[in-house]
Amino acid sequence: MIGIIAAIDEEINFFIKNTNVIETIKDNNVVFYHLRKENKDIILAKSGAGKVNASMTATKMIDKYNPELIINTGIAGGLKPAEVGNFVIGNKLVYYDVNMSSHRSKHQHGKVRGLPLEYKSDSTLVAKFHKFFNERKIPNLVGTIATGDYFVKSSTYLENISKEVTNILAVDMESAAIAQVCYLHNIPFLSIRAISDIITINYKDEEFALNIKNVCGELGKQILEYICSI
């Protein structure tokens, strides 16, 4: 069984509308959907936004369903060279809002004590999705996704983590948290995000609302087609 985690309705709607829903289970604030498409079983979870919701959902999914891998999907803010509509395959996931330094000790910005600075997606999944998108001539980039509990409208939020890691292409609120849970449970993980808005000094709020439905639908379509092809 393949696990998919997304935060909000717009990010899960395509999957629900284009598969057979075998069962719907609500576990407090998390909703799990057992989906089936062409003999493929998928457990889809709507986590709610943010790192705590994401990590709790990933833990529950692993405990309840023991998926063979977990894909995190949804929208993200993009940084150049990413453009609206591009898919970003996160080969590395980092926190941009973690800082455990104090007057007593200094730690790398973004690093949870005792854990890696960067969580790595499953390299085989990264390569396979990159090839899948390229064969369909779908614009996609492979790079770092930075996660935190802010709605990022300016790259100034990323100044500290940019000193520690390179090639940040997208920012979101869930990917690194799910990656951390998968790292601790030794579950293959991949985050794929559709760029809904571009973070610049001239950020436009309306860009996010205008693009969310279309980019989520297209990304959901491609992920579902990939799952059915394997």
Rank of each mutant, 00 (worst) to 15 (best):
T144E: 08
V98M: 09
N66K: 13
A179T: 03
T59D: 09
Q180N: 09
L184F: 02
N160W: 08
K17G: 03
L141Q: 08
L117H: 04
I75M: 12
T57E: 09
I22W: 11
I12V: 14
K46A: 07
G143S: 04
I62L: 08
K128Y: 13
A177D: 04
E38M: 06
L115D: 12
I187Q: 00
L79S: 02
K60S: 13
N140C: 14
N99M: 07
D41A: 02
I4K: 05
S123M: 14
A58L: 12
S105V: 14
H107Y: 15
L79T: 08
P116Y: 05
C228D: 02
I201Y: 07
C228A: 05
V165Y: 07
S154D: 15
G48E: 06
H107G: 00
S162D: 08
P188K: 08
T24N: 14
G148P: 02
M56V: 15
E38T: 01
A127S: 15
I8Q: 10
G217I: 05
V215Y: 03
I212V: 12
L117T: 01
I227W: 01
N167L: 01
I168N: 00
N202W: 10
E38F: 05
N53P: 06
V21R: 13
S123V: 13
T166W: 06
V88Y: 03
I195T: 03
Y65N: 09
M61I: 12
E207I: 02
M173R: 04
A76T: 07
Y95F: 15
M1Q: 01
I42E: 00
L219C: 08
G114F: 03
M61F: 06
S101H: 06
V126R: 11
N53D: 04
N29D: 13
G90L: 03
I22F: 08
A194T: 00
V31Q: 06
V98L: 11
E218Y: 14
I25D: 12
K51D: 06
E174Y: 02
V30H: 11
R136G: 08
T144G: 03
N66D: 15
L190Q: 00
I42H: 03
S196T: 11
H103M: 15
F14L: 12
N91L: 07
I227D: 04
K204Q: 13
T166R: 15
I198R: 00
S47Y: 10
T147G: 01
K153V: 14
M100R: 03
Y183T: 05
H107M: 10
T200P: 00
Q180G: 04
A179R: 00
G74Y: 03
F208N: 07
I12N: 01
R136T: 00
T166H: 13
E218G: 07
K60I: 05
E218P: 05
G143V: 10
M100Q: 10
N39T: 02
R113G: 12
F87I: 14
S47L: 10
N202C: 10
H107N: 09
F189P: 00
E164H: 10
A54P: 11
I138P: 02
C182I: 05
Y150A: 15
L141N: 06
M56S: 14
K40T: 01
M56Y: 13
V142Y: 11
E118W: 05
S101P: 09
H34T: 15
S175M: 03
A76G: 09
N160D: 14
Q180E: 04
K221D: 11
L190Y: 08
I42W: 02
R136C: 03
I4R: 08
E23A: 10
D9E: 15
V181P: 04
A179H: 01
